[in-house]
Each structure stands twice: as structure tokens, then as C-alpha cells.
Nucleic acid binder design. Structure first.
Lengths: 212, 212
DNA sequence: CAAAAAAAACCGAACGCTCGTTCCGTGAAC
DNA sequence: GTTCACGGAACGAGCGTTCGGTTTTTTTTG
């Protein structure tokens, strides 16, 4: 039953093949270094057919960026469920694991972000990042402020803290999984997350209770 | 007296002009998108002359990367003086300020690092980064371990802590000054450094003394 | 239900252009 | 007279895109 192919199905399948091929090529070589002929060959379509499905090379790139936004905005994404729970900083390790998963499963798309910054001056991503920062602040602001009022948190601004932790873990795993520098702290990722969490939670200064 | 130009002086001056022109073009457009004709026009030389001074486009890029290594390895660099003093974490704010200065004064060169990662798979930088991590560990390892033994530091691994702090500040200022996203935490850089330092020093958990 | 017509998927040659690099000529410095 | 900084045309290759045509699917029509 899945054999019968309607025209729309074929078109969808072709577009998907193109996007998949283009993603791996862009991620490995950047935008300018990737040619339409390479994308055509790898996706099994002809060059002319590429232009039947897409307006041009940059549109393919733009659609790939959009794919990543949709992943990041999906409420079912484990990372987003953790954000909604807003149990920071108790869930630091869970957050790190969820971010590691996002980076691992989307390493090619994340590279596109850096390609956009370098080859397009951030043209395709700037608006989105601004919007995401605002959404983030809206999600966390009141809840964390309330918890700080109740003395459950330390004296640092909890909104800055959650942004720092999030961004740090994204950066750490991006370097490891996208830039190809594994164990760049001399630790495997599990140990590294453990150390980072300890620092973020307890701080670098000695605690009074630790000096009897 | 500075008028008299020997042949070697002219050659040096020309090479410098080429490197300066190429740096600003590479940083704005990436490697592949920058053409030898653009570099020639901006540096005021002819295309043929470019190939008299440099073996090709990639050699120009490589020499620019080397320029940045020389800056980072200079013992007179304020950041390196702070590292040698090894007063971490008391000097967190000084360290941040020194890193901000490095990023601000070398923003174009730092972009080359990211260009190398994307367009050359990190070919020009990988060896150096490995070497730098080792040097870093060698500088800090015993001193920080000794201080921790003396109870001057918290329970976190101080070597991981200093690497985290360094990398975080580099990353923060790179996003701000190289990727063109100012105030991306909703704070200006001075406030942001203050908040980051508070988090790193005191941690996110409440201190016992703060709950009377 | 089949035949004809319209639409959509698809191909690959061709176009116009720009690229990195080479080559050769010129004039100033040694 | 030899060397060296320099200029600019020329080369061969490869680029993104266009275009005319063929095949396949869908729709229309008798």
C-alpha cells in the first residue's frame, strides 16, 4: 500500500532527498564551497530538477535553517520539557544531557548556524535568536524571581544563571560534536558535565561549612 | 629619512598591505567568497604581484592565522601576565577584562578561527589548540592544586574551573564582538562580567550564612 | 473506461560569468 | 647586467542558473 506513489509524494520525497544531501555537504564544506552539481549528484536528481523544487541554492540553505528552528521550537523536545518545568538549578545535569542530545542529533544543522554567521553575516538566524532570547526570559523570569525571593537560590541573578548554563553547555557540546574536538577539557563529556555542575552550583570560593 | 626605501622595505610593506586587506575581507566574507582580485584591489597591488609575494590564497590565510598565534603567545600580552600570576579566582574580573581586550583587538583574527573550522575542517588551528591546552594545564596544574590543598578554593577541580572561566569569557566576547550580537544577555558587558563572576565564585545554591 | 489534453517531475546541455593561477613584459634597484 | 617588485592580459576550469525537451502522472472529455 505504501508502494503507490502519488505525484505529491514523489515531489516531497525528492525535496527531502535534496535537503538531506545539501545538509551534509553544507555542514562539511560550507555554503560557497558546495555546488549545485554536488547536491544533485548526491541526491540522485538532475541539476535542472533542483531548480524545479527550489528557487536556488540559498533557498535550500534557508529551508535547512528552518528545519532546525522547528526542532528547537517543538514542545515535545526533551530540552523544552525541562525548560517548562523550570526546576533550575536542581535539573542542571538533566539539562546538560538534554542539550547534549540536541547537539548530537542536530550537529549538522548547528554547523549551519556558524556558516550563516560567517558567509551571510548571520542573515538567516539573527531574528530568530532575538525572539528566542525573549521567549526564554518570559518563561523563566517570574518563576525564578519567586524562587529567589523564597531563599531557594543564591544571590546571583537566576535568569543570567540559567542563560549562562544553557549557553555554556550548548557551546561545550558544539565544540565537541560539531567542531570535532572531543575531550577538550581532558575529560569525557560525562565527567565534564559533573565538574561544570559542581562549579555552577557550589562556586569556586570555599564554603564555610567545609572548613571546620 | 624614512623616505629612502630599500627593496626589502618595499617588499615588506607590500606584504603587510596584502595581509591587512586580506584580513578584513576574509573576516567579512569568509575564505572562498573572497577573491584574489578583491585582495589585490584593496591592497593597491596587482594580481600578479600577489603571487610574487605569496604562494597563493591559502598561504595568505595561513599567515594571518599565524599572526594571531604570535599575539596569543606573547608573554607581554596582559592576559598572559594574568595567567602567569595564577591568582585565580581572585582575578576573575581582571581576567575577563583582559580577554575582552584580546577579543576586541583581534576580532577579525578570531573570526578566521571559525572560518578555518568551517572551510578547512580546522586544518590550520587544530595542532595549535592542542598545544595551547597542554601549556595551560602545565602552567596551572601544580599551583592550583596546592592552593586547593590549603583550603583556599572550593571543592571543584580548580583546573577545570579556570578553563571553564577562560573559555566562557572568550566565547561570550566572541559572540558579542565578532558575531555582532551586543548585549546578548540583556546586559552590557560590564554588568554581564559582574554577574558571571558572582555565579562562578559563589555558585547558584544558597549559602548557609545567607539564611539567618 | 479509454483517449486526449494538461500539468508536473525530470533531465542534461548550454550560457554567461568569475574564479585561482600563470605568463610575459616593464621599469626600478642593486 | 642581473635581480626583483610589479602590472595586466590570458587560460582553463568551474560556478549558479536557464532553457528546451522528454517522461510520467493527473485531469478532462467523449
Amino acid at each position: 500500500m505504501a508502494k503507490r506513489r502519488t505525484q505529491a509524494d514523489k515531489s516531497d520525497a525528492s525535496a527531502r532527498k535534496v535537503l538531506k544531501a545539501a545538509l551534509s555537504l553544507f555542514a562539511r564544506q560550507g555554503f560557497r564551497a558546495t555546488t549545485m552539481r554536488q547536491i544533485a549528484r548526491r541526491s540522485g536528481l538532475s541539476v535542472g530538477n533542483l531548480y524545479h523544487h527550489f528557487g536556488g541554492k540559498e533557498e535550500i540553505f534557508g529551508q535547512l535553517i528552518d528545519q532546525y528552528w522547528q526542532v528547537l521550537l517543538d514542545p515535545e523536545l526533551p530540552l523544552n520539557k525541562i525548560f517548562s518545568a523550570a526546576r533550575f538549578p536542581e535539573d542542571l545535569e538533566e539539562m546538560a544531557a538534554a542539550i547534549e542530545q540536541v547537539v548530537a542529533e542536530n550537529s549538522a544543522h548547528i554547523l549551519l548556524i556558524y556558516i550563516d554567521v560567517i558567509e551571510f553575516k548571520g542573515k538567516h538566524i539573527k531574528a530568530f535568536y532575538q525572539q528566542m532570547a525573549d521567549r526564554f526570559a518570559a518563561t523563566y523570569a517570574e518563576r525564578l524571581a519567586a524562587r529567589q525571593e523564597a531563599g531557594e537560590l543564591g544571590e546571583a541573578d537566576p535568569l543570567v544563571a540559567v542563560m549562562l548554563a544553557t549557553r555554556w553547555f550548548f557551546y561545550f557540546f558544539t565544540v565537541e560534536k560539531c567542531f570535532g574536538v572531543p575531550m577538550h577539557f581532558g575529560l569525557d563529556s560525562h565527567q565534564a558535565v559533573h565538574e561544570f555542575s559542581k562549579i555552577l552550583r557550589r562556586g569556586l570560593d570555599p564554603r564555610d561549612v567545609k572548613n571546620p
